[in-house]
Structure formats: C-alpha cells, structure tokens
C-alpha cells in the first residue's frame, strides 16, 4: 500500500496542475525549444560545471511556476537511477568528477521534462501539436485526418482520471469477492492482477465504443480547416525565451565545433 503511494507521489512531478503563472502561460512551442536546448547542450558537454549551470537555470523557472516542491518528487523518483548511474560510472573507473557529471546530466534531463509537463496544459500541447506541419502530415497519413494525433493525445489525458476511477471500482469489486492482491511471491502477485485487468479492459473497450458514437454526434472529425476556440499566440515572454534558448543553442554548437578544447571534460 505504502509503496504504491510513493510511486503515485513521484508521478506528481510530471503531472500538469492548472495554474496561471508566467511559466504556465509560456507557449508550449517556446518551452519545447527551451528543453531541446537543454537537451542538446547537456549532451554536447560532459563538463560538470556546465551541467550544474544547466540545472541551476531551472531553479528560477521552478520557483516562478511554484512547482519546486513537486519537482522534488520527480527527483526523489529518479534518485535510485541517479545512484546507479553514479556508482556504475565510478566502478568502471571514470573517476569521481565524470561520474558526478553524468549523474547531474541525468538530473538535468529529468528536471527539464518534469518542468515541461508540470507547467504545460495538455490542451495547449494539443493545440501546439496541431500547429506542427509534420504532426498534421503524419496524422493524416496514418489516421486519416490532420488533427487525429493531437486529439488522441488530449483525449488520452482526459480519460486518465476516468480510467483510474474505473480501475479502483474493479479492484474494490474483486477485493470484496475475496481477491488478495498483495499475497505471494512476485510472480504470484502479477498473476493476482489478471482478474483486475480483464474486466478493466472490457470497461475501457465499452467506453471507447460509446465515445466513438458520441464523437460522431459531435461532427467529428470535421473539416480539414477545423477551427478552434483558443489560439496559441506568442507573447513577449515567449519571444524572450525563444531568443535566449536559440542563442544558447547556437553559441554552444559554435563552441563545440570551433573550440574542441572546451569540450574536454573538467
């Protein structure tokens, strides 16, 4: 019981909470460029100070978004993996500093994704996806219409809480019939979940059929030039973030190519 509580807690570090801070209001496209920059820079340089710098860059964002506490959950969730990375590198003889640098790199990536998902509303993300030509093209190729992928994404997010309630209902029902989930060895425990998964699957299939029917009744998928009530618009802060990120990205690449010396670790 307590164990599953901890795992849920760590997911909090990646879950969106509807708030209205300057970070939440940033355009997802600008934020995507920001994490791309962090991603690329952290991979280009294995320098502990650069990586620590990248980590520190996130602090003002975490503070402004008011998600510092929830970020700790995501770090806690990644702590085990971070420890493994550190000791594995130490044992393979790369020395303390490089091992530390690689660990920090992992934390940087964890932090930047956690920040993105904690502060980007899935709705906005869907809208942003809808604006990306490649996504629309792939979506039409695979699924028949241009906004299928973004719709799938937002609907999946919308259904998570509903399915979580379904799961709880099934678990309660099966428990009341004497099913014991936390008994036996690992294999046995996995087997215990079969009577939960099958009814849950049936419930989900039924739900999806009803959803499909209701979609028809709402004129889905609609026209090629489907409109939307809200529109993403770049604000001053978005331009600022894009400018900052692209500058850092360009400079880092320039350094990486022109001055290989700086590339040397430590």
């Amino acid at each position: 019981m307590s164990r599953s509580f901890v795992t849920l807690r760590s997911l909090e570090g990646f879950k969106f909470y509807g708030r209205k801070t300057i970070v939440h209001n940033l355009d997802p496209r600008a934020k995507a460029l920001f994490i791309t920059t962090v991603f690329v820079v952290s991979l280009l340089f294995t320098n502990l100070y650069v990586l620590l710098g990248l980590l520190i860059v996130h602090v003002p964002f975490l503070l402004a978004a008011g998600v510092l506490r929830r970020w700790v959950y995501s770090i806690r969730a990644g702590a085990l993996l971070a420890g493994i990375i550190f000791f594995a590198n130490l044992l393979t003889g790369s020395g303390v500093l490089p091992a530390l640098a690689l660990t920090v790199r992992f934390l940087v990536l964890l932090t930047t994704f956690s920040l993105f998902f904690m502060t980007t509303s899935p709705d906005d993300l869907g809208l942003a996806l809808d604006r990306v030509g490649l996504v629309r093209w792939l979506s039409r190729r695979w699924l028949g219409f241009p906004n299928a992928l973004s719709f799938t994404f937002t609907t999946a997010v919308r259904l998570v809480p509903t399915l979580a309630v379904d799961a709880q209902t099934v678990i309660d029902a099966q428990r009341s019939r004497g099913l014991e989930l936390d008994k036996g060895n690992i294999l046995r425990r996995i087997r215990n979940y079969v009577p939960i998964l099958i009814p849950l699957l049936l419930v989900a299939i039924r739900r999806s059929l009803e959803l499909a029917e209701a979609l028809e009744a709402r004129g889905f998928p609609g026209r090629e030039d489907r409109t939307s009530l809200y529109e993403l618009r770049f604000k001053a802060s978005d331009y600022l973030l894009v400018l900052g990120s692209s500058t850092v990205l360009a400079v880092s690449m320039w350094i990486f190519v022109i001055h290989p010396v700086l590339r040397l670790p430590f």
């Binding site: 899935p122 709705d123 719709f151 937002t154 609907t155 919308r158 004129g219 489907r226 809200y230």
Partner: peptide
C-alpha cells in the same frame, strides 16, 4: 472529450 467544460462545448462548433 475536452479537458475543460468550455472547450468541450466548443468541440462541435470547432469540428
């Protein structure tokens, strides 16, 4: 389908 009531009501007209 949508994540807020307002957007859900807008879903049909958007289509």
């Amino acid at each position: 389908f949508a994540l807020t009531v307002e957007k859900d009501v807008a879903f049909g007209p958007e289509n």
